[in-house]
């Protein structure tokens, strides 16, 4: 019983992080149909930025979230307007996916060159505080990670539903042509969406840095995690990402507990493939109507 509870709590903490890391991927996918294979590396750039602030300036990783988000918002906007949009205009969506893959390789290589291929971790002074609540042990790091994830996701949900730009983004996602006819500068909206996506990816990177060690090759896992979360929960919405992320977190923690620590990845990909086959229409909307 205690084991089950502990697994559940650990899974939820991990799931909160997965949700936050996936929401940006989900937004881009939902709004502009682009599969951003460089999403994982953006998450890691967030982690390395936070690491950099902590190492050189001694900034607490949680406090580094706002500047990390600001930097990545700008990079994301430029990335979309300067490259992704051109790729989409020029050739197919599959080709634009290859462009993002190429960028992922380049950025990963840069991270290795700058920060070395070794694992890094961020350990603020409060990293070793923990609580015992009934039968369950939780450390402060994990609690703050989960809380930060939930707060950020709620903020995003509010922004999407209560602000003008949020409404424009949602309208563009549903009908870009109609939005354009209503006078929306669709490209600017895409840029803003990409900026937000990168900002939230960066925030999740800062948080992941205090929860677990990270190294450049991990970017692949964060991209695939995002895809699985979206496939599980549904595309384009913070609630979908939250649902998918929490499910994935619990499932992978439970798998590693029940079958073996080597198997969460196998389980994750199995779920990915099975979900694509069983519920693509229900959760992803248009898996069968083609995207070419």
């Amino acid at each position: 019983m205690q084991l089950v509870l502990q697994t559940l709590v650990d899974g939820l903490v991990l799931g909160g992080l997965y949700s936050l890391a996936a929401i940006g991927f989900s937004l881009i996918f939902g709004v502009m149909n682009v599969v951003n294979l460089s999403h994982g590396v953006i998450v890691l750039i967030g982690a390395y930025l936070s690491y950099f602030f902590w190492q050189t300036l001694g900034v607490d990783p949680l406090l580094s979230i706002p500047p990390v988000m600001a930097v990545l918002f700008c990079l994301g906007y430029v990335y979309q307007r300067g490259l992704i949009q051109l790729a989409v205009d020029r050739s197919s969506l599959v080709a634009s996916m290859l462009v993002t893959f190429g960028v992922a390789l380049m950025l990963r290589n840069l991270l290795v060159l700058i920060f070395s291929p070794d694992f890094k971790s961020i350990t603020p002074s409060w990293a070793f505080t923990f609580f015992v609540i009934g039968p369950v042990t939780v450390d402060l790091v994990r609690i703050s990670a989960l809380c930060a994830s939930l707060v950020l996701l709620s903020l995003l949900a509010l922004a999407l539903h209560r602000t003008g730009i949020g409404r424009v983004i949602r309208a563009t996602a549903q009908q870009d042509l109609a939005a354009r006819l209503c006078g929306v500068d669709v490209r600017h909206v895409y840029g803003l969406t990409f900026g937000m996506s990168a900002a939230f990816a960066g925030a999740s990177g800062a948080i992941l840095g205090i929860v677990m060690p990270f190294s450049p090759p991990d970017e692949v896992h964060w991209t695939i995690n995002a895809f699985v979360v979206v496939t599980l929960g549904g595309v384009g919405s913070p609630s979908g990402a939250l649902l998918g992320g929490l499910l994935l977190g619990v499932i992978s923690t439970a798998t590693s507990q029940a079958i073996g620590p080597a198997f969460p990845n196998v389980m994750m990909f199995l779920i990915l493939v099975v979900m694509l086959l069983v519920r693509p229409a229900g959760l992803l909307g248009n898996a069968f109507s083609g995207s070419r």
Binding site: V94, L276, L277, A287, S289
Partner: peptide, 28 residues
């Protein structure tokens, strides 16, 4: 039968998933 019904990126990603599952199983 199941996978070739998926089109575009969904097929691409499903195949990526298949290769990862096989690779990880083979390894573990």
């Amino acid at each position: 039968y199941p996978i070739l019904r998926l089109r575009g990126i969904y097929f691409a990603i499903a195949m990526l998933g298949v290769s990862q599952v096989l690779g990880e199983l083979n390894n573990n």
